[in-house]
Design a protein around this nucleic acid. Structure first.
Lengths: 234, 234
DNA sequence: TAGTGGTCTAGACCACTTT
DNA sequence: AAGTGGTCTAGACCACTAT
C-alpha cells in the first residue's frame, strides 16, 4: 500500500471510531511526517485528500480539524446510501421497522401505476451514519416485478442495491422539497424537536414498468445534497 | 496567481474552447513543466486537479486525455426562475431589495476565490409567482468578470440571464439543504411563521474563474425541485 | 526502448494564526 | 517567535503503455 494511503487509513480510523470527534485537531503535516517517517509532501497528501473528501477542514496558520458531520451527497447519480456513508469513512448500519405486504392506497397505486387496492410491498428502514440517523426510507415496491422483495435482509444489502440487481434501472424521476417532519418520521430519525427536513420522492422504472416508489427523508441538520456539473459547447 | 493555477487556466481554455475535443491528448507533465518553466510536481498538480474535477482522464503509461461529455446534463439544468413561472402559466415579477458594492466577507471571498475584503457586488431579489414570493435570491458577483453588474435592471432581466450572456457558464456546483429561514429571509418571503425552506447554494464558473455565488431560498410550502433521468445501456 | 503517469524525498520560502 | 498550511523545486525510482 502507498504510504500516503496508509496515513489516510490511520486518520480514517481515528475519525470513524469517534476517538477524534468533530472539530478535534488532526495531527499536523510535520507530526505525521515524523510519526510515519515520510517526507512532509507525503503526509500532506494524506491530509489534503481527506480535506477534498470533506472529512477534515484545513486552515492556514491554525491547523487541521475533524469536519462537522454534515453529509454531502451527489444528486446527479442515484447512489447507495451505505456506500456514501462508508466513503466518508463513517460506520453504516440500518434498522428495519416495517417489511410487509399491504393493500395499495390510492396514492401509492397511482405512483406505481397499479389498480387501487392491489397488494404491494412496503418497507420502512432507517439508515445510520455512525450513531445518527441520516435517512428514513419509506418504500413501496411492485410485487409483480420484484416478487421476493420481502424476504431480503436489508440490514445487509440496501433496497437500492437489491432492486438494481433484479430490475436494472432505465428511468427515474425525483422531487425534492423541504418539509416539517410528521410524527412517525421524527420518531424514526430520533428527532426530539421538529426541524426542517429534506425529502426526496423518487420513482424508478425498469423495462417492465414502475418498480418502486420511495420517500427518503433526511434531517436538515445532518444532510446536504450536492452536485457538480460541467458544460461543454454544443 | 499560483503557477499550478495558471497552467489549469491554460488547459481549461483549450478544452472549453473546443480546440481540444473529447479524447484529445492533453500536454504531458513533462511538456507542461518545460513550457511553463516549472517543476514536474507543479505541472502534475494542475493535471491532477483537472482529473479530480472530471475534465480529463489520466491513464498510466499512456497519457492524459480530454474526458468525454457527461450524459444526464439535463437533470438539474440551471433554469431561469422567470421562465419556469411563465411555463406554469403564471405571472412573474421581481423586487430588488439590495444592489450594491460591498467588501467581501471571509466566507464570500472564499466561495468566489478572491482575497478577503476585496470589493464584490451583492444583490438581493425576491421572485414572485403571481402574488406570492417563491424565491429569494442572494447573490455575490465577481466584479472583475462582470464589471457592469450593478447597473442592470433586474426587474426586466434576471441575474441568471444577464450573467449567462456576459460570462457563459462552464461549470456549476450545487448544495441543496433544508433549513429554517432566518429573519431577513422570512421578511423577503413574506412568511408570517417560520416554515421549512429549501435552500440551493450555487457557484458558477466561466472560463475566467468563479463568476458568482448565490443562495436561493424557497418556501417549502410553495416549491418542489424536480428532475427526470433516463439511463442508457453502457 | 522511450515516454507516461504514480509515488516519494529533502529541502525551501511564504503568509498566516496563535501564543 | 513558533507552528501551521500553501506553494514550489530538482531530483529519484517504479509500473505501465506504446512502438
Amino acid at each position: 500500500m502507498a504510504k500516503f494511503s496508509a496515513i489516510k487509513q490511520h486518520l480514517y480510523r481515528k475519525i470513524a471510531s469517534g476517538e477524534w470527534p468533530e472539530h478535534h485537531p488532526v495531527s499536523s503535516e510535520n507530526a505525521l511526517s515524523q510519526q510515519f517517517s515520510v517526507s512532509r509532501m507525503t503526509a500532506r497528501r494524506a491530509l489534503q485528500e481527506l480535506a477534498d473528501e470533506g472529512l477534515v477542514i484545513r486552515s492556514k496558520g491554525s491547523g487541521t480539524y475533524v469536519a462537522p458531520i454534515k453529509s454531502q451527497t451527489s444528486f446527479m447519480a442515484i447512489r447507495n446510501i451505505a456506500d456514501e456513508v462508508r466513503e466518508r469513512g463513517h460506520k453504516y448500519h440500518a434498522v428495519v421497522h416495517t417489511m410487509r405486504q399491504e393493500q395499495a392506497t390510492a396514492n401509492v397505486a397511482e405512483f406505481l401505476q397499479l389498480p387501487a387496492n392491489t397488494p404491494v410491498y412496503h418497507s420502512v428502514i432507517t439508515h445510520y451514519e455512525n450513531h445518527d440517523p441520516v435517512q428514513v426510507e419509506e418504500r413501496w415496491v411492485n410485487p409483480k416485478i420484484v416478487p421476493k422483495y420481502t424476504s431480503q435482509d436489508f440490514t445487509k444489502v440496501t433496497p437500492h442495491e437489491y432492486l438494481s440487481s433484479v430490475a436494472p434501472l432505465t428511468e427515474a424521476s425525483h422531487q425534492i422539497e423541504a418539509i416539517a417532519p410528521v410524527e412517525h418520521v421524527m420518531h424514526w430519525l430520533k428527532l426530539e424537536k421538529p426541524e426542517p427536513c429534506l425529502r426526496i420522492q423518487r420513482r424508478t422504472w425498469s423495462e417492465s414498468g414502475v418498480v418502486t416508489y420511495a420517500l427518503l427523508t433526511h434531517p436538515g441538520s445532518r444532510f446536504v445534497l450536492g452536485g457538480h456539473l460541467t458544460f461543454k459547447k454544443n
